[in-house]
Simulated scan of single mutants.
Amino acid sequence: MPGLEHTVTIDAPPERVWGLLVDVERWPERIPTVDSVERLDEGPLTVGSRTRLRQPKLPEAVWTVTELDEGRSFVWESRSPGVSITASHLVEPQAGATRLTLAVTISGPMAPVGWLMTKGLTRRYVETEAASLTRAAEDGAG
C-alpha cells in the first residue's frame, strides 16, 4: 500500500496540539493547503463524522472518521472510484513537548497510478500541514 508518514516535535502541550488538530473547520485559516472545510454533521469529531474538504489541485473529497482516540489520534478515510485514501493524525506527549505524526496511505485498484500522480503534492501538503499546526500551537493560537 503506497503512502507516507511525517513526524514533527512541537514545543507546545499535547492538549493544545490536539485542540488545533480536531478543529477542522478552522483549518483553512491555519493551513494554506486547505481551501475550505464543511462539516456534514454537528458537534465534535466522532467515529462516523463526515467532513467535505477542498484543497488546491485535488478533487473535493468527503472524509469520514473511522477511528478516534480522544486527545490522542484520529483516522479518516475518503473514497473515490478505484481509490481509498486513509489519513491518520497522532498526538503524543514527548518530554515537555508534543510529537505529531501525520500519515497517508492509498489503496484500491487505482492506487498505484493515483499515488504516482499525487505523491509529491501529497508529501508537500502533509509537511505544510505539520508546519502550520506547529506554528499555530507554538504561537498559542487557539
Rank of each mutant, 00 (worst) to 15 (best):
P13Q: 12
P13Y: 02
P13K: 09
P13V: 10
P14C: 05
P14W: 09
R16F: 03
V17Q: 09
G19Q: 11
G19K: 05
L20D: 04
L20Y: 07
L21V: 08
L21R: 02
D23N: 12
D23H: 08
V24R: 02
E25L: 06
R26E: 06
R26P: 06
R26G: 09
W27V: 03
P28L: 05
P28W: 09
R30C: 03
R30M: 11
P32K: 01
P32S: 12
P32H: 01
T33K: 09
T33P: 02
T33M: 03
T33C: 07
V34S: 01
D35E: 15
V37C: 06
R39Q: 14
R39E: 11
R39P: 08
E42Y: 02
E42C: 03
G43H: 07
L45W: 07
L45D: 07
V47F: 10
V47H: 09
S49W: 04
R50I: 02
T51P: 04
T51R: 11
L53G: 00
L53D: 00
L53N: 05
L53M: 12
Q55F: 01
P56K: 02
K57L: 14
P59E: 12
P59S: 06
P59R: 12
E60P: 01
E60H: 03
A61M: 15
V62W: 11
V62A: 07
W63M: 05
V65C: 10
T66P: 03
T66Y: 00
T66K: 03
T66H: 00
E67K: 12
E67R: 13
E67L: 06
L68P: 13
L68W: 06
D69L: 14
D69W: 06
D69V: 13
E70H: 13
E70V: 15
E70R: 14
R72D: 03
S73A: 15
S73N: 11
F74M: 11
V75W: 03
V75T: 15
W76P: 01
S78P: 07
R79E: 15
S80T: 15
P81I: 10
G82M: 11
G82C: 11
G82W: 04
V83S: 10
V83M: 05
S84G: 14
I85M: 11
I85D: 06
T86V: 15
T86I: 15
A87Y: 07
A87W: 09
A87G: 10
